[in-house]
Design a protein around this nucleic acid. Structure first.
Lengths: 345, 345
DNA sequence: TTAAAAAATGTGTTCGAACACATTTACTTC
DNA sequence: GAAGTAAATGTGTTCGAACACATTTTTTAA
C-alpha cells in the first residue's frame, strides 16, 4: 500500500513532474503521447495527493467570523460560544483565524449593524444564526456580492442562493416532543404549547416546532392542544390563570430552552402532575430534569452545530472539501438518567 | 492575528532559525543570552507551529489494524465496518494505511490467531474489540512488548497498562433501559432480562448492562426482575414456556442487538402488551420499532466508536495529539419518532 | 532551408518545521 | 598567546504539491 508521489508517477511514466502536474490538474500544454503515458500510470495506481503538502503550499490566512446572539442575554447561546472557542484552539495551528461577534437577539437593527461591521472586515467566510428573516436575506445578499462564503446554523431559512445549514429539523423535533408527551400523559388529555418571549421577529423556528407538535396529535386525534404565548416576566402573574382556565391540563410543551421558567412555577405551586417537556441542557433545566419536574429535554446540540459548521468551512479551505448543503443533527432525547452521558467530563 | 513562523521569531530575536528551533524543542546547546532573547519573543507572541508543515516533514507511512468480529456473523458489527471504510477514505490522503481483520466471535482461538497475524505485521497501532478477557490480556501484553499502540472499543475491560477506550458506560446503559422500562410499564410489574447467545466467554459486557438494569429497579423496589439466558435457535421453542411461567410479565429488556428475535416472537404470538427494549439500529430492529413492537432502542453508535477510535490514533500520529484514556459516548434513546434523525441520508 | 512562433517539457523555488551538518565563537590548558 | 577542545550558532536539505520560469522540441511561414 505504497503512497505514490508526483515524483514517483513522473518516473514511472518517464516524464517530468511538471508534466504529471499538468495532466493531473488538466492545465493543458501536454502532448497526446505524454498524456497517455501519465494516464496509464494513474489508472494503474491509486494516487491520492498528500493533503498536508498541498495545503502547506497553498498556505494562506483564512478568516472566519461567527455572528450570534450574546450568550449573556440568553444562556442558550453559551454552548455555541464554547464551540467557537474549541474551534479556535483546534484550527489556529492550521492558519485559520476565527472571530466572533454578538448581536442583541431582541433587536434586528443590531443584527444588521454587526453584519455591516463584519462585511467591512472581508473575511473568507461567515457563520451566522439567521434569527431574523428579512434581515438575513439582506446580509446574505451582501456577503454573496462580496464573494464571502456564508454558512448558517440553529434555524433553517428558505433563502435563495443560500445553502450550507447545520442544525436540526425543527418540525420533526416538535413531533418527537409530541410522541414523548403522548407516552407520559393519559389518553385524550389537554396539552399546552407555551412560547416564551417569542415575538414575530424570530418566531419562525418556534412555529416549526409547534407545527410538528400539533401534526403528531392531529394524526392521533382527540387530544386538545392549546397554544399560549407569554412574556418571561409575566409568567408568575398569568400562568396560574391559564392553567385554571384549562382544567385537566396534563402536559406542557415549551418550545425553547426557557422551559425552566415554567418548571419553576409548576414546582412552586405543587402542580407536579403536569408533565413538562422542553429544550436544551441549561443548568436550570438540568436541575428540574433531575427533580423530575421536567420529564424530557430535547437536545439541540448547539455546541456541536457551531463546531461542525466551522469544521466544514475549515476543511473546505484547507482540503477543498465540499460543504454539505444541509447537515441535520440527530435529535437527542434526554432524561434524568442519560443526561450526564451528554455532558462534558 | 498574524501567524508567526520560526523564521519570523528568529528575525525578531536576532538569532538564526536553528537556535529558535533548539529553544522551542529544548534541545540544549543554546547560550543563556540567546535563550533569553528567543524566550522574550516567544512570551510576547503566541506561537503555534504550523501542524501541516510539521506533519509533512515527519511524513511516514502509519499503519493501523482494526480487529473485530466478522459482520457476516452478526449484523451488529456492520456499522463498525462502515466506520472503518470511512476512516480509510478520510485518512489515506494523509499517509495513513488502515486495514481490518475479522475473527470468529464464538471462538476465542480465532481471536488469538488473528492477533498473532496482526502482530507479525508490526503495525503502528491496533484498534480492537476486546470480547474475550483472558485472550485480550494476552494480546495486549504482546503488543505492548512490540511497542505497538493499542486502543479498544465496544466494551471496557479492566486491564493493566491498557488505556485508550472508546465506547459507552454499559452499567449506565442498563440503568437507562430500566428507567425507560419503568416509564412504560405499570407499577410493581414483572420484568424479564433476556440474554441471547451470550456464553461466559464474552458475557462480561452483557453482565454490566444487567447489573445497571437491576440497580435501577432495586432502588425503586417492589418490581420483580428475572433473568433468562437463551440460545437464538431455541427461542421459538422455549420463550413461550418462559412467558407462561411468569404470568403478568409486563416488559422484556434484551441486552443485545438481537432483540428483533424476541420481537418476532412477541408479534407472532400477539403478545403486544409486553413492552420491549433492546439495543442498536439493525434493520430488523428498526422494523419492529416502527411497528411499536419494540418500544425503545438504545443506540450504541458502533460506527462512531470505531471512527472516533481511529481518529484519535490518526491525530496522535499526525499531530501528536493525546489519546483520551477513556472516551464515553452519549447513550442515545431511540424511538420510532426520532429514529430517522440518527440514520444516514 | 531557416528563422520565428508556438507548443511541450523540464527545472527550480516556495510553503514551515525539523534536523543533519558546517562554521564560528568561547573556553581550557600548557 | 597558541593550540586544541567544547560549546554555540548558522546554513542547507528534506517532506510533497503547486506553479513560475527556463529550456527544448515541434510546427509554421517565408
Amino acid at each position: 500500500m505504497k503512497k505514490y508521489t508526483i515524483k514517483d508517477i513522473a518516473e514511472l511514466a518517464g516524464v517530468s513532474k511538471g508534466t504529471v502536474d499538468r495532466v493531473i490538474h488538466k492545465r493543458g500544454k501536454v502532448s497526446a503521447k505524454a498524456y497517455e503515458k501519465v494516464n496509464a500510470v494513474l489508472n494503474e495506481i491509486d494516487y491520492k495527493p498528500n493533503l498536508l503538502a498541498r495545503s502547506l503550499k497553498n498556505t494562506k490566512e483564512y478568516h472566519i467570523c461567527v455572528v450570534l446572539p450574546d450568550y449573556k442575554e440568553d444562556a442558550f447561546w453559551t454552548p455555541c460560544f464554547e464551540g467557537i472557542q474549541e474551534a479556535i484552539n483546534e484550527y489556529s495551528s492550521f492558519g485559520i483565524f476565527i472571530e466572533y461577534y454578538f448581536f442583541d437577539l431582541m433587536q434586528p437593527s443590531s443584527f444588521l449593524e454587526v453584519h455591516k461591521k463584519v462585511l467591512g472586515l472581508l473575511p473568507n467566510a461567515v457563520l451566522l444564526a439567521p434569527l431574523f428573516y428579512k434581515e438575513t436575506v439582506k446580509v446574505v445578499a451582501n456577503y454573496n456580492n462580496a464573494n464571502i462564503l456564508v454558512s448558517k446554523f440553529n434555524n433553517q431559512l428558505d433563502i435563495e442562493n443560500s445553502k450550507n445549514f447545520v442544525g436540526q429539523d425543527l418540525f420533526k423535533s416538535g413531533r418527537i416532543a409530541a410522541s414523548l408527551m403522548k407516552e407520559i400523559t393519559s389518553k385524550n388529555a389537554t396539552i399546552a404549547i407555551i412560547n416564551i418571549d417569542e415575538d414575530s421577529n424570530n418566531a419562525i423556528y418556534v412555529q416549526e416546532k409547534e407545527k410538528g407538535f400539533r401534526s403528531y396529535f392531529n394524526e392521533i386525534g382527540n387530544y386538545t392542544i392549546v397554544t399560549w404565548n407569554c412574556k418571561q416576566q409575566n409568567i408568575d402573574d398569568t400562568l396560574g390563570d391559564f392553567i385554571d382556565n384549562h382544567s385537566g391540563l396534563a402536559g406542557i410543551f415549551v418550545t425553547t430552552s426557557k422551559v425552566y421558567k415554567i418548571a419553576a412555577f409548576i414546582k412552586n405551586k405543587q402542580l407536579a402532575h403536569i408533565k413538562i417537556i422542553g429544550y436544551d441542557l441549561l443548568d436550570e433545566n438540568i436541575k428540574y430534569l433531575n427533580q423530575h419536574i421536567i420529564h424530557f429535554l430535547i437536545h439541540q446540540n448547539p455546541k456541536k452545530q457551531v463546531y461542525l459548521g466551522l469544521t466544514y468551512l475549515v476543511e473546505h479551505f484547507l482540503f477543498n472539501r465540499e460543504i454539505p448543503a444541509k447537515s441535520l443533527l440527530p435529535i437527542d432525547i434526554i432524561t434524568a438518567e442519560n443526561l450526564d452521558t451528554y455532558l462534558e467530563v
